[in-house]
Design a binder for these strands. Structure first.
Length: 109
DNA sequence: AGCCTGACTCGGA
DNA sequence: CTCCGAGCCAGGC
């Protein structure tokens, strides 16, 4: 199921997600570390999934493969892809992002 | 406490 | 580079 993470843990995750610059993307693992959650990359995903907050740029958080991998739903996936493309991020034919090019890095904006 | 599940990640084939 | 299996963390029952 989709467990609900403690509010403080959510807050950390959200704080990190909000730092992701426009036109950049970050991986779950990356966010987890920045949030001080170590390897709890999954928790990041659950937290974002449970939230569904439009004011939060959750669309910039993707998996290490550079792809938007939701369980099976297409709705959110398509919407997310559109949002990212609108930010100037390119997707290949497989619907994947070139992380080496768009991944958020400190000092890189 | 114990077991199951999940927007994940890594390493090996 | 892609596919598979095992590992990790936290929450719900």
């Amino acid at each position: 199921m989709a467990p609900k993470t403690a509010p403080n843990a959510y807050d950390k995750i959200y704080a990190v997600v909000r730092k992701i610059p426009h036109g950049r993307v970050a991986t779950y693992g990356q966010v987890a570390r920045l949030a001080g959650l170590g390897r709890a990359a999954r928790q990041v995903g659950y937290a974002l999934h449970a939230l569904v907050d439009e004011s939060l740029p959750w669309q910039r958080v993707i998996n290490s493969k550079g792809e938007i991998s939701l369980r099976a739903l297409e709705g959110p996936e398509e919407a997310q892809r559109r949002l990212l493309e609108d930010e100037g991020i390119d997707f290949d034919l497989r619907g994947r992002v070139d992380l080496s090019r768009y991944q958020w890095r400190k000092g890189r904006n």
